[in-house]
Amino acid sequence: MKKTKIILGLSLLAVTGLTLVAADHIDAPSVTNNASDITDFYAFQGQDTNNLVFAVNTQGLLTPGTTAAASFNENVMIEVNIDNTGNNIEDLVIQAIRKGDKMYFFGPYAPSATGKASSINTSQASGSVEISKYGQAPIIADQNGMKFFAGPRDDPFFFDLGQYQAVIGMTATGFKPTGTDTFAGTNVLSVVIEVPKSKLGTAASLNTWVETKKKQ
């Protein structure tokens, strides 16, 4: 599970240029190399400053040769949780789940239950988008004031794993000014949602985190 905090400012417009990210490739054996593995989560202000963008990346370390065969699982839901009251409990959720060749989105709306259990309120559908294919132009849907994307992307997270291991092993004292991108040349499967700030409440700050949940 990834968690981050977005400081919006009193006007909900004071995050120009702000990007927050949490990352953790290959969390645990039960999610390694499958649709449940969240590699990183980004939350930032959109090009339209009235909007926020949530980007969830899954299934990291995909090589160019394996990316085309990678797919979202119809039994795995991606859920962006939004706390706008400061109690670290989700007040709103945005959910995404694949059906066939499309990704369907629901919310933001108040969940019927918080924590591990979730259900989808199908009356709160916000849109859908055809899942983009590797090597082709990205498909972006614009519906109900929101924008959606689902499909493969180059892994955007930069991390020098070799130097990190050297620091941990005490054979180096720090990171280099220009490191080596361990994830260069690898891909992820991404879900991106752009949503008007007006749909997220009027709080001065938001706590956000993302989860993948398997259908029971």
Results as ranks from 00 to 15, higher is better:
K2M: 07
K3H: 07
I6N: 09
L8A: 06
A14C: 02
T16S: 13
T16E: 06
L18K: 14
T19W: 03
V21K: 13
V21P: 04
V21S: 15
A23I: 06
A28H: 09
P29C: 01
N33S: 15
N34S: 00
S36N: 05
I38T: 12
Y42E: 15
F44V: 07
N50W: 12
V53L: 13
A55H: 12
N57Y: 15
G60W: 01
L61A: 09
T67M: 00
A69D: 01
A70E: 05
V76E: 04
N81H: 15
T85Y: 12
V93C: 02
V93A: 00
I94M: 07
Q95L: 03
A96V: 08
I97S: 07
I97A: 05
R98H: 05
G100D: 03
K102C: 01
F106I: 00
G107W: 07
Y109Q: 09
S112C: 01
A117L: 12
A125D: 00
E130H: 05
P138C: 05
P138E: 09
I139R: 11
M146K: 14
A150V: 08
F158L: 01
G162T: 08
Y164H: 13
A166M: 06
V167D: 02
I168S: 04
P177E: 01
T180F: 05
V191G: 07
L206I: 12
N207Y: 06
W209T: 02
